[in-house]
């Protein structure tokens, strides 16, 4: 009754979730490149929040493995690490967190919403179009 639903890559990197994320990223890069009639992709810039549970080296490794033979094969991946910032619902103060104790650094409340740190976003793709 069961079946295998994952075939993320023919290269055997499908076991890390970073590989799954790299494949999703690459799909968007390739799609954007073809929409822009690019010859090749030079660079890709992404934002990764510190709370996104991503190992940058693993993501880089997976991206480099998966990009081979695609329009993005020479693309360089730039990862911007985004700090965790929370805004207090009580006093509106913004706190930046190094550790995982999301307490307002002004008033001590735990009624804090994270305004950054969970990103897994693409920012910019540089393409060569002639």
């Amino acid at each position: 009754m069961g079946e295998t639903v994952f075939s993320l890559s023919q290269k055997g990197w499908g076991k890390l979730h970073e590989a799954s994320i790299a494949q999703s990223l690459l799909d968007i890069v390739i799609e954007t490149a073809s929409e822009n009639k690019a010859k090749f992709v030079k660079s890709v810039k992404i934002d990764i929040g510190r709370l996104a549970a991503i190992e940058n080296d693993a993501l880089m490794f997976a991206f480099d493995a998966l990009k081979e033979g695609t329009i993005a094969e020479n693309a360089r991946l730039y990862i911007n690490d985004v700090p965790i910032v929370g805004r207090c619902n009580v006093c509106s103060f913004d706190s930046e967190y190094e550790s995982f104790d999301f307490c307002c650094k002004n008033c001590g409340s735990y009624d804090v919403i994270l305004i950054s740190g969970e990103e897994l976003n693409i920012k910019e793709i540089e393409v060569e179009d002639e």
Partner: peptide, 12 residues
Amino acid sequence: MSKKVEVKDKIL
């Protein structure tokens, strides 16, 4: 010519 394309998309 190289061109920068702004993409505002979530990777996933």
